[in-house]
Simulated scan of single mutants.
Amino acid sequence: MGRLWDKYMGTRHPDSGVTPIPTMELRTALLALNGTGVPFGVRDAGASGSDLLAEWRVLEPATGSGASRRQVERTLKIWMRMLPGERVVRAMDEQWSVTRAGNPPGLTVGRERGRGPMRSVHKEWTFEKGPDGRRHKVESFSLDTRDMKNPLRDTVTGAGWTWRGVHRL
C-alpha cells in the first residue's frame, strides 16, 4: 500500500549516485526558478509552517456576455517544507478557484478549494478561418499543472533530495 500511496501522491526519489546538496543550496535553487520563464513564482512562505511557497495565478478566458458573463480565477499553490535530516521536501498541493459574473466581473458566484495531488489539464479551443478558407480548431487557452510541479520536483530530485507529496505538512 505504501508504494501505491506514494505513486498517487507524486513522491519521487533522486537517481542513485546523486549526492544531496545542503538545505540552503536547495532553497536557493528553488528560489532561482523565478527568473527562468516558469509561469509561477517561488517565495518564502513566512510563518505558515512551511519553508517555501510556489504560487501560480491563472485568469481563464471569460465566457458569455453581459450579466451572464463568467470568468474563473485559479490559484495553484504548492507548500514546501524541507526536512534536512531526512533529505526530504514535503509538498502539499492546494487549489483555489473563484468564479465571477458580470461585465466587468465583480459578483462572486462560486468558490472552490481543494487540497491534495494536483493533476489536471484544462484546454479550450476556438474555430478560426484559415488561409484555405476552411475553419480550423485553434487552442485558445491551456492550463497544465505539470508546468508548475515538474520544474519544482526536478530541482529537488536533481539536488539529491526526495520529493514527497502529502495532504498535511
Rank of each mutant, 00 (worst) to 15 (best):
M1H: 08
M1D: 02
Y8Q: 09
G10Q: 09
T11R: 11
H13S: 05
D15V: 08
S16F: 01
G17N: 03
G17E: 01
T19V: 14
T19Y: 04
T23I: 02
E25K: 06
T28I: 02
T28F: 01
A29P: 00
L30R: 13
L30W: 10
L30A: 11
A32T: 02
G37K: 12
P39H: 11
G41Q: 08
R43N: 06
G46Q: 12
L53A: 06
V58Q: 00
L59W: 01
P61I: 04
T63P: 07
T63E: 13
S65E: 12
S65G: 14
R74N: 11
K77G: 01
W79R: 03
L83C: 01
P84I: 00
R87K: 05
M92H: 11
D93E: 14
S97C: 04
R113S: 03
M118K: 07
R119L: 06
V121P: 04
K123N: 09
R134V: 15
V138Q: 14
V138W: 09
S142D: 10
T145W: 11
M148P: 13
N150L: 15
N150H: 14
D154G: 07
D154Q: 14
A159V: 06
A159R: 06
A159P: 03
T162R: 09
T162H: 03
R164W: 06
R168F: 02
